[in-house]
Design a protein around this nucleic acid. Structure first.
Lengths: 217, 217
DNA sequence: ATAAAAGATAAGGTCTACCTTAATATATGG
DNA sequence: CCATATATTAAGGTAGACCTTATCTTTTAT
């Protein structure tokens, strides 16, 4: 279980859970990693040999139970490190992902459990993604997007997609996790949504508002 | 600067500073890593190509300033992680080394500086080794061994060699960093030293007592 | 139904960091 | 000062994880 293998498992896991694809296409992995499809194919064979994925030509790849278990460990490590980096070291949220990406491969389960306890067993990371426990269970994922909210509603930002350019953009808009906003106006033609945050008017494009998840307050 | 290269630099650094060898012999590196001399030779050539070491056949290898700077970064990262693992997560000292070994390669300088500040800028790690600052400067290394102390002296344990079997042995003897002991008896023929720790009589072999460093109280 | 697009496989290449076996050079001790 | 032990170099090999070019197969869309 080296870092390369681990990265593949995590990526496949994220695709599976993200869009509920039955099978993840090799081409999508290639695109995401920036590798050629041939490299992906080779690696998939290796993963299959290790019993971590099942693979159907022209269909794609899917995690086995064993593979999913491994992927969850990584997701868990990643999110726990994000909480540490943010809560204890004060790293800005756009920097968390890349640093956690390195740390997640560098820690034994024993240390991870201690770190988890040290952080107070958080349920969510600093982008609002749930942290699986040792058995793989996790709190629900917020699924209601900001753009799907109705005018007049007051909502709280609970999850954002962990993608650096997006996070930088949200910084510019002065939007963070747990911010409360009220929907003032939604223009489905102009593809814009206008919200109020403590008297401040913030205009957000539909594309961006669809990557922000909220709860009704 | 991949992990393999980093491990070599750190090892060479440790040999250089440990025994003040002018040049580190390839064979010693081979022995320490458990690799063949040929592998060492290849890697040394790579390191030389990167300008990290100078190499004289039949003499050995020595860090260049650039190499030493890199090695110090690693030593620093290693020791800072040890403090974190011990002070914040409560890991026993015999487990620190192996975990820190993985973490030291997985962290950017920016995060390391934040971690260092979070820990209160410690001067020494939990085996008593000094932590270099960003410029490479560090507090003095304790050099007086327990075995070199005289009968009747009261000393404090300030540094131990970071070697797991030794640390396990010290655990069994109930000896830790910052323990105060009084030398009761030193038998250079039997190669034993007897000390008193809070009324407890502890017998230590010369070999072990030479890996424990103290200050006079 | 078939052509174009998408996907898979095959063959051969690179680089890193290891390995082994064999030949050669140097150092040093008697 | 020369033999032996030690150290170095050379040549060729492996596995992992990537690459390219070229061929072949399946899906899907008209």
């Amino acid at each position: 279980m080296n870092p390369a293998v681990e990265d593949y498992l995590k990526m496949i896991y994220e695709f599976e859970s993200d869009r509920k694809d039955q099978y993840v296409k090799n081409a999508r992995l290639a695109e995401q990693f920036g590798y050629t499809i041939q490299s992906i194919n080779e690696m998939i064979k290796r993963l299959k040999g290790m019993g971590l994925v099942e693979y159907k030509p022209y269909r794609g790849v899917r995690l086995t139970d064993k593979g999913r278990k491994e992927a969850l460990k990584l997701v868990r490590a990643h999110r726990i490190w994000e909480v540490f980096l943010s809560d204890k070291l004060g790293l800005p949220w756009e920097a968390l992902h890349d640093e956690a990406e390195k740390l997640e491969h560098a820690v034994s389960e024993a240390v991870l459990e201690r770190l988890y306890a040290f952080l107070g067993r958080p349920e969510y990371c600093n982008h609002g993604n749930p942290i699986p426990d040792q058995t793989g269970h996790m709190a629900p994922t917020y699924k209601k997007s900001l753009f799907s909210s109705s005018v007049g509603e007051t909502v709280v930002i609970k999850r954002v997609v962990d993608y650096k350019p997006l996070l930088n953009h949200l910084n510019k808009l002065d939007l963070s996790l747990n911010d409360q906003v009220r929907i003032l106006e939604k223009d489905t033609f102009a593809k814009l949504i206008k919200v109020d945050k403590n008297g401040e008017l913030i205009t957000i494009s539909q594309t961006i508002a669809e990557t922000i998840y909220v709860t009704q307050d």
